[in-house]
Amino acid sequence: MSVVTFEHVGYTYSAKTPFEHEALKDLSFTLQEGRVTGLVGHTGCGKSTVAMLLDGLERPTSGRILIDGRDLWEEPKKVREIRRRIGLVFQYPEYQLFEETVEKDIAFGPRNLGKSEDEIRTLVHSAAQFVGVGEDLLKKSPFELSGGERRRAAIAGVLAMDPELLVLDEPAAGLDPRGRADILGGVCAYRREKQNRTVLLISHSMEDMARFADDLIVLKEGELLFHGTTKEVFCRPDLVREAGLALPQITRITNALCDLGIPEGITTTEEAAIEILKRLDS
């Protein structure tokens, strides 16, 4: 897969009722193959609606979603076929575990796709490895795991279907720093090791985006505010503020020192240290 394009997409919840709510307005963007794109914006800006539409769970009220140039809803009966290539991780996916063992739970997806037992075994083990679910955990009941382990097991269940487009809605919410890094690092490893995988990462943590996203789409009240590389967005504190978000502390500190020759839009502390030391030499 490759390219996913939103073409003037609009979506209205409960249309023609008193609860009518226009969640997305004339939204256009293209997700580049092989990149991790972050989707950011304040609560209620339409992030989760984008995920739902991408997975074909609902049909856009207006506009089109193109996958490899083909309209997802061109033939409504074939949406299911396209959906097999898309993996969606909902918020708090650990509530969706249900099998007797973690291994069986992760195997549920590939088994439904009609894979052979051999293929299933390989897929399960490779998916588990990406997010650090070890052999010992595979044999346990999902209910014996800690919160963070359960979350990783649920994400492995989606990775095991080997999706070409992986959409994750707040995959690290509520986890401690190590738990966050395990999950987001695992997703990036999946993207790196498999060819041509596209990842859409939804989060309101700009710190996580700084470390894991190549590009960012910034939404505000259902509309596109900006789409560019993470660095470009981090050079625009005005836009970030307008979207109701905050840049990481490190970016705020270094942006305030640009008169000393330190570049704007620094994303991580390591990068900040390198840039500062470089300028001490000159």
Binding site: P177, P248, Q249, I250
Partner: peptide, 15 residues
């Protein structure tokens, strides 16, 4: 201990 420190603390520590 698997925890972070604030980014300003970390930057000054690295430097």
């Amino acid at each position: 201990l698997g925890l972070d420190v604030p980014q300003s603390t970390e930057l000054l520590h690295l430097l």
